[in-house]
């Protein structure tokens, strides 16, 4: 045991191990700080640019600015005034349902079980080199 300890001391084992581990951690922590800083400034830059360009058109907004009840009555030309509130309610419910579904579903390339992000990984990386057959 003393012999082993002697060899480690002679080879400056403790010093090199400590310097090595700390060095790698410092390097990759610097890298982490760089990436985090870059991401943050990139987000801020995007936000500023968006603000300068004005509010983006809201894709999830209702199809028309006029009240739903009026549109329903006008477009269908319904003779029965009693059906108007029902139609308006149905249109509103459909709109809300669509908006909720859009919020749940991932945007393209942003996740979800069948997203491009995951599919690219599954298709590309799960194949071992040399296993591909023509």
């Amino acid at each position: 045991m003393a012999d082993i300890w002697q060899k480690i001391v002679q080879g400056q084992g403790g010093l090199i191990t400590a310097v090595g581990i700390i060095g790698v951690f410092i390097a990759l922590t610097c890298l982490y700080l760089f990436i985090a800083g870059m991401r943050r400034s990139s987000r801020a830059w995007r936000r500023r640019r968006r603000q300068r360009a004005g509010p983006a058109p809201d894709s999830a907004s209702p199809p028309a600015a006029v009240p739903v009840a009026e549109t329903a009555a006008g477009s269908t030309g319904g003779e029965n005034d009693d059906e108007e509130p029902l139609r308006a309610a149905a249109a509103a419910a459909a709109f809300l349902q669509l908006r909720a579904r859009a919020a749940r579903a991932p945007a393209p390339g942003r996740g979800g079980p069948g997203s491009a992000w995951r599919m690219s990984g599954r298709l590309g990386l799960m194949q071992r080199p040399g296993r591909r057959r023509p």
Partner: peptide, 28 residues
């Protein structure tokens, strides 16, 4: 970005093995 630290942690094996190799009589 925090996943970069996992890449650092896995390098501990290199330096622990350095100690092992010294103990087995290899030169530094």
């Amino acid at each position: 970005p925090k996943l970069v630290l996992l890449g650092a942690a896995a390098q501990v094996g290199i330096f622990v093995t350095y100690l092992g190799a010294l103990a087995l009589g290899f030169l530094p």
